[in-house]
Each structure stands twice: as structure tokens, then as C-alpha cells.
Design a protein around this nucleic acid. Sequence first.
DNA 1: GATGAATGAGTCTTCATTCAT
DNA 2: CATGAATGAAGACTCATTCAT
Lengths: 207, 207, 207, 207
Amino acid sequence: MTIQQPRTRIQKKNRWTILDAALDVFSDNGFRGATLDQIAASAGLSKPNVLYYFSSKEAIYTALLSGLLETWLDPLRAIDPEGDAVDEILAYVRRKLDMSREFPRESRLFANEIVQGAPHIIDQIEGPLKDLVDGTCALLRRWMNSGDLAPFDPYHLIFSIWATTQHYADFNVQVAGILQTDQDTQFGTAADFLDEFYRRALTPVSG
Amino acid sequence: MTIQQPRTRIQKKNRWTILDAALDVFSDNGFRGATLDQIAASAGLSKPNVLYYFSSKEAIYTALLSGLLETWLDPLRAIDPEGDAVDEILAYVRRKLDMSREFPRESRLFANEIVQGAPHIIDQIEGPLKDLVDGTCALLRRWMNSGDLAPFDPYHLIFSIWATTQHYADFNVQVAGILQTDQDTQFGTAADFLDEFYRRALTPVSG
Amino acid sequence: MTIQQPRTRIQKKNRWTILDAALDVFSDNGFRGATLDQIAASAGLSKPNVLYYFSSKEAIYTALLSGLLETWLDPLRAIDPEGDAVDEILAYVRRKLDMSREFPRESRLFANEIVQGAPHIIDQIEGPLKDLVDGTCALLRRWMNSGDLAPFDPYHLIFSIWATTQHYADFNVQVAGILQTDQDTQFGTAADFLDEFYRRALTPVSG
Amino acid sequence: MTIQQPRTRIQKKNRWTILDAALDVFSDNGFRGATLDQIAASAGLSKPNVLYYFSSKEAIYTALLSGLLETWLDPLRAIDPEGDAVDEILAYVRRKLDMSREFPRESRLFANEIVQGAPHIIDQIEGPLKDLVDGTCALLRRWMNSGDLAPFDPYHLIFSIWATTQHYADFNVQVAGILQTDQDTQFGTAADFLDEFYRRALTPVSG
DNA sequence: GATGAATGAGTCTTCATTCAT
DNA sequence: CATGAATGAAGACTCATTCAT
């Protein structure tokens, strides 16, 4: 009998502990590579106790993914239609890069999931995510039409932002292996580059 | 008593068949998620027969990875130091995107490997790959210094190209889920976007 | 997640059951010849359950060997330096023969291990066992020097006792095949023989 | 189609090569622990070719055992009923010890087989071997009755000789681990010990 | 709420043996 | 005579999940 809604304080705490441990394990090993033993050990709980809070390994994984997707899209929602176009996008790039630095496990969890065909969240991608992106692209298009933004395919522009910012979390070993610098320097120089890069590309030609 | 070097025609054929099947399975499921059963079935061979050609599951995986890394870096080597800076880089972007379209399984294989910490190829990353990138970055810097290319951190420029082009292979389900178009259109519009995007960003301001 | 130290009653019982079953199977078939299936069946447990108590087949084997080595050497430690030399040795021979009769499986387990090069206990042989034997040989030499014992190489004397007594456990099928008598008679006549034999050989010439 | 009787020179040679290789492998690893791959590799032949000469792994093992049993008992047959009792037995002890030094693999092969219940040669033990031993024991008894040999149970006397001499081959790692000397010294001191030991025990008290 | 105990279904790997040439 | 190729059967070990307390 797995619990559905956490009621007591201890239940909330344990569910959170498990999800945090699972995030560690799943992001490092992927879904198949992760084991309940690892998660239980990392959470400091017994295996059956973990399954008392979540009905199955897959349930933990799914709970993690859907719980995270919301947070993951927040930066996109934060784009202000009333703001300056280029500034808003540069701020978005910045926020996405910050998330890669602060939540690399979450980023890699999604990367793993999507690279392997997104079996657990394909619905959310084709539903809520698509809707959100469609909305943002409409805004971008308006900005482009009004001359506030250089004209591009807005969808691919968003893809490029996702790709370039998440790259620093998902492919971090490669970045680190080539740059041979510490994390702070990596993200610092990346921020400078992306800022300058998108500014040049997006600023409309005046006149 | 596993085969070491393919000698006969049938050995070459079967090794190739296995590697091709393994590419399917590994790119879809990652190393841990893939099973020898799947690979054997996909190759149309019995499981022990697969192990007659490769000593272990990991041996297949390693053979795939190292065999591919070479091919994977060819586009980078093809940049011509004597050519026009912007044109050369745009051609490189184009070649990378072509590879994502033509070899998405290979791209996802690497993505899987690197997202999970690159345990099997970290050496090649920190060795040959770093050397190659270092060389290319030196060239980029010369182009920037001579005014043929807008000035950027060359390493991050290369990372951005990898990220934006491989994105269409590695995160294809997401791209497809949002764009809701067929592959050809996805890659066609992506090519246009990336061409225009990098052209704007990289073309130096004329004096 | 294998048990490390037995805590509960059921753990102690099951560990003991497994070790006893393993003793049967290993002594009859050697390490390689034994299978976890046999051990599990003989212990009345499922194979995974056996591995719940011991991390591997080898762990069972090692636990058996090291747990036994102590017991195996007890008779040697029981030799009393203050006692009569010949009587003490004859008593030792007797105890060793008794052990062969009462613990033939243990004897064959060691025999199997040592005949195949003692890969698992070579360290204990060259360490604790050698030290113990060295000590006993010093005692034997004192007895020989004081004229209480016929002079022999003490090491080879001990080897001969090991060989002649363990022979009745290790080569029991051969002994039984040739004598064609029951176990009790075999060991009874063996005891008489060894007693008389060692008495004649070891009693110093008077005068 | 396995060959039954070797006809050509090459057949004889290959059969002998296989048996020699098998002796290496079986004596080191026991029947179950040995693999056809090891035997084939050690013989420098392909695995199917090995099975061309012997129908199965077991056939090789059986051929080895029965081919060796003859040789193994030669020293016993060489006891001369017309010779001096004590001298003859001391010579037998000596010959047996020599065999342990010169043919340790053969000795360990038998030891392995018998410790594990002699499943392949129990018939020969209860037949030819028992007959031969019975005969020798009758001779020993005559010598004892005539006062040429101290009176003992002749069967156990023979067992003791087998045990003490084969010990240096079968338990060689143990002997070497305790003595910490080279092979030559081990066997040299053993020969001295056994000679003196059996002389004292067997020489009848002169009337 | 929690956990020690137990297991069915895999999953990789080994190996004696057979097939085809 | 000889061997490259292939496999069925077994064997060690893993793991998500269930049971019993």
C-alpha cells in the first residue's frame, strides 16, 4: 500500500529525501543504470521503505521528471513581453545558463531521458511544453516583425538557446576535459561568450 | 577464445553486423539499458555467437565508440586554414548538422556516454580531442586577430557549434514534438537558421 | 546488499545451514566443480537467498576455509611440552586420526584446495601455519636432544603424521575399495597400526 | 567420427601431445576446473581437432587416468619376493618418493580424482589395484611371519607408504610453504627421513 | 512506519560439443 | 586432418519487488 499524498511531516521529509537521492543516482546512471539499492543507500533508508513511499522504481523516476519539468520551464515564462526584446532574450540565456550551473543533475536527468526517446515525458513535451514554446515564439515573431529583434525562425532560436546553455551541464565532462579549468571559470567565460554572441546575432540592424 | 583481428570475409561481415545492431541498441538504451539479447536478436545471431566475435558487452561498446570517434571529428579537421574564415566555419556548421541528420544513432551514442560521465572515452577526450580542438582554436584566434572573424572565445564558439548541431540528433524527440514536422523540414529549417545565425554573429564589422 | 555480520537468530541459522551444505558440495566436487544450485538445494534455500547471506560463491568457500583452519590446527596446539614425548605424539596422531573420522568433509575440502595449489589459503599456510609448525618443531627437537624421542627431522615427522592420518579421510574410497570393510573397522585397524608404528619408530633406544 | 586406434605417426604424436597437455591442465585444475580451450591451447591444436582424437573431454581424462594407473603401480610390482624384506620395502619407499618428484602432475591427477570419490576409476581400484595390493600384502605377511619384518597390518603399512610419499607431490605447496626451501632440498631431506623412519619401524627386533 | 528475509525473472558469460567446409 | 563458425545448456550474479512481522 503505497502512500499517494504525503500527509505527515515525516512523510514529506522522506519523500523529499528519496527524490533528492534518486536525482543523484538517476542523473549519474540513467534510468536502467540506477538501482533501488543505490537510491535507498543514498537516501539512508531501507529498500522496502523506499517502496513504501513510491510504488516502484519507475514511480520515483516519473515523480522526479514531472516535478522538475515545471521548474525547468520557469525561465521561459519569465520573459517579459513588455521588456526590451534583446535584453529579455539575453536575460533568458543567462537564466538558463545559471540553471545549468546550479542544477546540473536535473539537466542531465532530462538529457538522459530525451536522448533515449523521452518515453516517460513525451506527452508533456507534445502538450504543455509545446504550448508554452508556441506562445513564446509568437511573442518573438512579434518582436521580429516590429524590428526589435533580428529576424530568425523563433523555434530554432529557442532550440539554440537550450542547446548552448544546457551543453555546459550535460556535456560537462567534455567541456572540462578540453578547457582544463575549474567550474567557475568555465561558466564565467561561457556567460561572457553567450552574452556577446547572442547580442551580435539578435540585435537588429539599425536604420 | 574471442576473435581478435577479423581475418575472413564472414568475420568482417559479422563483426560489422554486430556493431551496426549494437549501435541501434546502445544509442536507444545506453550502455546499461542495452542487453546482449537485444543486440543478438537485432543482428540475427545467437548470443554466444555475438560473444564469439566480441569478448564482452563492454568490448562491443568500446569498439563502437573508438571506431566512431575518428569519423566524428573529421569535420573539424576539414576546416581549411587557407579558406575564408566565415565561410569555413559556416561550412563546418553545415557538415556537423549533416552528420546529425545522417548519423543520429552515433550522435546519441556519444551523448549518452558523455552525459553519464564519459567513463569509456574520458582519455580520448582529454588527449586527442583536446589536442585537435586546441589546434583549431589557435587557427580561429589568428582569424580573429587578423579581422577575418568577429572576436569570441574560440573554445566556447566550438562548443556552441557542437551543441546547436548535435541537438537535432540528440534531442530529436523534443524537436519533433514541438515542431510537429517531418525530419526533412526540421533539418532544412535548422540549416537555414544556423547559417544565418552564425553568419550574423561571426561576420566582422567592416572597418 | 549482502549480510556482513550475522545479527539475528535466523541469520545465524541460515549462514550455518549454508556453510554446512557448502561443505558437502565443495568437499565432493572441489571449488570449480561445485555449483550454487547444488549448495542452495542442499541448504533448502533459493539461490538468490544464498547470495543474500554470502556475496558470492567464492565468499562461501573462503568463509568455510578460514573458519575451519583454526579447528584444523587445534590438535597440534594441544601437544603438551610438559608431557612424555612419545605419549604426546602418539596422542597427537590419535587426535588427527579422530578428526579424519569425524570430519572427513573438512579434510577433503583442504585436500582439494591444497592439491590445486592452495590459491585461497596460501597466505595462511606461509604465515600462521608455518609459525605454529616452527614452534612445534622446536619442541620436538628439544625432546630429541634430551633423548626423549628418537632423532628425526621434525618437519618431516609432522608431515608424515598429517599424511598418514588424513589419508583415511582424503583417500577414503581407495582405502575402502581395497579393505572392503566398514568405516569403523577401517579406522579401528588404522588406529592400531599407527599407534604401534609410531611407537616403534619414535621410542628412543634405551641405554 | 573420433578415431579409436591411432594408426599413423602423426596420429600417435597428436594423441600424445594432447594427453601431455591435458595432464598439465587437469592436474592443476581438476576435471571440472579444466577446459578444452586450455588443453587445446596448451597442445597447440584447435579445439575441434582435439575432439577429433578424443570423443569428449571426459574421454581425454579417462584415457589419461587408465594409461597412468599402470605406470603408477609399477613400483609395487617391482618388490622382489626373493630379496631382503626391509631392503625391499625401503627401496619401494624410495621409488615411490622418486615418482612423486618426477611425476608430480600424475600424482596430483590421481589425488584429485580420488579425493572427489574416484568416479572414473573406482572399478580399477576395486579390481586390479585391490588384487595387486592383496598379493603384496600376502608377501608382507609371509615376511612378518618368518621374522624378516616387524609385524604390522600390511594393508595399513602400504597405505602409510602411499600417504607419506605422495604427500610431497600432492601437498607440495604446503610443504614448500612451511619448509621454505627448494624442491631438491625438500625431497632430499624427505628421502633421508623416510629411509630412517621406515628402517626403524620395520626392522624386526633381533632375537 | 519500518525492515529483515526471500525470490522470479533476468543478464552476462562460459563451455563442451557440433556443423560445415 | 584440420579449423572457423555456431550454439544449447548451464552457471554466477543482479535487481525490482513482495512477504511477514
